[in-house]
Nucleic acid binder design. Structure first.
Lengths: 196, 196
DNA sequence: GAATAAAAACCGACTAGTCGGTTTGTTTTT
DNA sequence: AAAAACAAACCGACTAGTCGGTTTTTATTC
């Protein structure tokens, strides 16, 4: 059994999440993480070949969470999927508040490396594509009015990212979750076909 | 005359802009900037008390540019102001591509300092307030349909920030400028009152 | 099931280098 | 001559990553 090994690995990961999200990617040193996880530097570099590799491992976990959520909503109707998304708003805003800064920080410096850029842009494009076809499906199944799926997708994603970024810049500046819900309602009203 | 002194200062500033935007705030070291500006470290710290202070000075310059633009559009009608904004899209996207990464990077780590946070959030709130009252003015003068100015402002700003952020993440992923124009047209169509 | 060998996991001092900032002394301007 | 501007060596704190050696786990043999 590799019980101990797995425990060490997961201790590293949870300490990393904790410190990256509170202090940021750069400000949280490998030594800090080792200290918090109560393991040695040797153990750290036995499990991860670099600090960057550790972050990429974390990223992978998050992307899988998203993929799972998408998979689960596979056979729902499009409006149902959207409703499910709105219901996830509280969780999303909370998670983004913790996770988005470290991701942005990491990405801003790591994206200069072509390997990293490719690895992070691929899922982004994948999700965009998925979202576009979701809207197309909504139009085809008659739930939505005729819109350009591509453009609408970019619009909704922009809105979401902008809202998230603003909630990051000025958390107390507005009731972001409420604002998000209101905007969603507004958009759904113009998007949903009125059944006479 | 303090000709030479001013020249040194402006050499530092232009080198800083150049290096911060190409390499990022952290990756561009003070030594790099001095070397590029062909001045010594002593000169650097004679003009700016820290690397952070230098960045704040740059920020101040940009904020003034924005303030000037706002001032200039003071006595235009609201739709005219919006048209002026759309016309600035090419410039905005180009500038954001260079400037936004370094600003985000700086902000993500500096915002943990309360002084910095206050200094950067104040203009953000100021602009939001201005934008909200701009929309209110549009409604009042009869150009726009009845909307909640606060919510609409948040929506438009979200859209803008999301678009900018996406164009940063995946510059080649879409024709962002065109997308921005189309989305603007779409929003203006729902916002503008149809004069019979 | 004990003995043993091999492999995996782990430790922590150490390296080599970076970077923001300081200090001391010199030149230029006023 | 006084003050401002500048040059360049220097400092100290910090950090990602390495490496030789140790402990623990696993596989193998008897």
């Amino acid at each position: 059994m590799q019980q101990r090994s797995e425990e060490t690995r997961s201790k590293i990961i949870s300490s990393a999440i904790k410190l990256f999200s509170t202090r940021g990617f750069n400000a949280a040193s490998v030594d800090d993480i080792c200290k918090d996880a109560e393991i040695s530097k040797g153990a750290f570099y036995h499990h991860f070949e670099s600090k960057q590799a550790l972050f990429l491992a974390l990223l992978d976990g998050w992307l899988q969470t998203i993929d799972n959520a998408i998979e689960l909503s596979k056979d729902k109707t499009v409006p149902e999927t959207f409703i499910q998304m709105t219901e996830a708003f509280p969780y999303i805003f909370a998670t983004a508040g913790e996770g988005l800064p470290m991701f942005l920080e990491f990405w801003l410096q790591a994206s200069r490396d072509d390997k990293i850029w490719q690895a992070s842009i691929a899922p982004y494009r994948r999700y965009h594509k998925h979202f576009t076809s979701l809207i197309k499906k909504g139009v085809d199944e008659g739930s939505f009015v005729q819109v350009d799926p591509e453009l609408t997708a970019r619009m909704i994603v922009s809105m979401a990212m902008g809202l998230l970024l603003q909630s990051l810049l000025d958390p107390e500046g507005a009731k972001w979750e409420k604002t998000a819900r209101e905007i969603t309602t507004m958009m759904m009203n113009t998007l949903l076909r009125k059944e006479a």
